[in-house]
Design a protein around this nucleic acid. Structure first.
Length: 270
DNA sequence: GGGATTGTTTAAAC
DNA sequence: CGTTTAAACAATCC
């Protein structure tokens, strides 16, 4: 499940190899992967589209082209990497480069999509603050949580509120800050919100440093993968014991997602 | 074969 | 009526 740190890891690796390269064709293997454009139109008048930069916004990988951009969302099982041998089984699209390199979009569940946009306006409109940006301050978080009466886990997962957190880093940050996932956002104490803010930033930075979490479905660059899974403190540890208090970790359902928590360390603010 | 998984979209409920 | 929640959807694996 690629979340912000995993997407950032893919972006960092691709940028080094792809900036300055020209895309000469995009071949969809599974047709629905191209969400809103036809590569025939795109390449009709352009023989090659230079990749000016590769960046991240929310959980999108953005290829900046001369007058447009490609936004790639990995969803659950997508992988994007440079490959020049045989084509893997679950490949949904292939980008061919002028140099002969190929970028493979491999996606077993086929939820991943490629979008073509003129600019980032539409993505920006639908997505909230970047948790690693300067704008994401503890004051901002406290103010915004006060404005809403929503389930805290659902709110942290809501991409239009804060962009980039998924199930793993949400559970981790709530455990670190001692907040029960079923807490109501505006009832959480200021001290706890400050801890939450700190936890989100620290966890994301550490996970990027570790090149992401290798769990369930994520890998990048032809099989290489990150090792943040070693540092997970609550996610996936059902029936094991809490690192803080030793109590058994529970798995419940919150906001429609499997949720791991320590009932003793995480206080429910209502 | 049922459940789990993602974010967007749509519908329903508060 | 605006805000929040729930359900449906895409597809596959075990």
């Amino acid at each position: 499940m690629p979340e912000l740190p995993e997407v950032q890891t893919v972006v960092d690796h691709l940028r080094a190899d792809l900036v300055g390269e020209k895309i000469i064709a995009i071949r969809p293997i599974w047709l629905k992967v191209l969400h809103n454009f036809d590569p025939n139109d795109l390449f009709k008048k352009n023989h090659g589209l230079e990749i000016k930069d590769v960046t991240r916004r929310a959980k999108f990988i953005i290829f900046h082209l001369p007058s447009s951009l490609l936004a790639i969302h990995l969803r659950m099982t997508g992988k994007l990497y440079i490959f020049n041998e045989e084509i893997p089984k679950h490949t949904t699209a292939i980008f061919e480069l002028e140099s002969g390199k190929k970028i493979i979009f491999e996606d077993t569940r086929k939820f991943g999509r490629i979008y073509l946009y003129e600019n980032l306006d539409l993505i920006n409109k639908r997505h909230g603050i970047e948790p690693l940006s300067a704008e994401f301050t503890k004051t901002w978080l406290f103010t915004e949580l006060k404005k809403k009466k929503r389930n805290i886990k659902a709110l942290l997962l809501d991409q239009s509120f804060i962009a980039g957190l998924g199930n793993i880093y949400t559970d981790e940050s709530l455990w670190v800050s001692g907040i029960h996932p079923n807490s109501i956002s505006n009832a959480i104490s200021k001290t706890a919100v400050i801890k939450l803010h700190q936890a989100i930033q620290t966890l994301l930075r550490d996970a990027i440093e570790a090149k992401g979490t290798t769990i369930i479905n994520f890998s990048f660059l032809n099989g290489q993968s990150g090792n943040y899974a070693d540092q997970l403190r609550i996610f996936g540890r059902q029936d094991e014991t809490c690192f803080k208090c030793g109590k058994e970790i529970e798995k419940i359902r919150v906001a429609g997602r499997g949720t791991y928590l320590c009932n003793q360390c995480q206080r429910k603010y209502k």
